[in-house]
Design a protein around this nucleic acid. Structure first.
Length: 153
DNA sequence: GCCAACGTTGGC
DNA sequence: GCCAACGTTGGC
């Protein structure tokens, strides 16, 4: 079982949106970065735990947790000409982009702010801090525990 | 809205 | 395969 952090702009899709889905389960789609794609396709597995990160908003930080319920499969949006995520170069037999299904688990009472994560000495090696632009990134077990210890404070 | 960091594209 | 130009991300 592995830990991950997925980013989303809450104005596009927030943790509240996920919680409001039927069965609190949604598709994590629209990933259009190859490194993130490879992780989704090859490494993210059902049962893995994921932080939901809110980016480009008033309260930047980790908003809660979710769990992976379906491993990587071709992102349907790449074939949908009406979708913002349409990719003319993707073919049904050779999909370019992948998505996973996730189920909402917990919404933190207060978002754990990026500013506090950056100040926490035991989190200096987090991908979030070092490789800030990656939208799908790994989290270690100790980082997971540390973030959980910072929530609801 | 600015801008640094990083990813992608395309000419050669 | 290099690298300049360009596009995107995302914090502030």
């Amino acid at each position: 079982m592995n830990y991950w952090l997925f980013k989303s702009e809450p104005s596009e899709y927030s943790i509240e949106d996920l919680a409001a889905e039927p069965d609190a389960t949604g598709v994590w789609d629209g990933i259009r970065n190859y490194q993130a794609r490879n992780t989704l396709r090859d490494e993210v597995k059902p049962g893995d735990c994921v932080f939901f990160y809110h980016s480009s908003c008033q309260k930047v930080g980790i908003a809660g947790t979710m769990v992976v319920v379906k491993a990587g499969y071709p992102d349907p949006a790449q074939f949908d000409a009406d979708s913002h995520y349409y990719d003319a170069k993707a073919e049904a037999t050779k999909p370019r982009w992948y998505c996973v299904d996730v189920r909402h688990q917990e919404t933190f009472d207060v978002v754990v702010p990026l500013s506090e994560i950056k100040q926490n000495p035991s989190l200096v090696n987090m991908a979030l801090v070092k490789q800030s632009r990656l939208s799908i990134q790994p989290v270690t077990a100790s980082e997971w525990k540390e973030i959980l210890a910072m929530r609801n404070q």
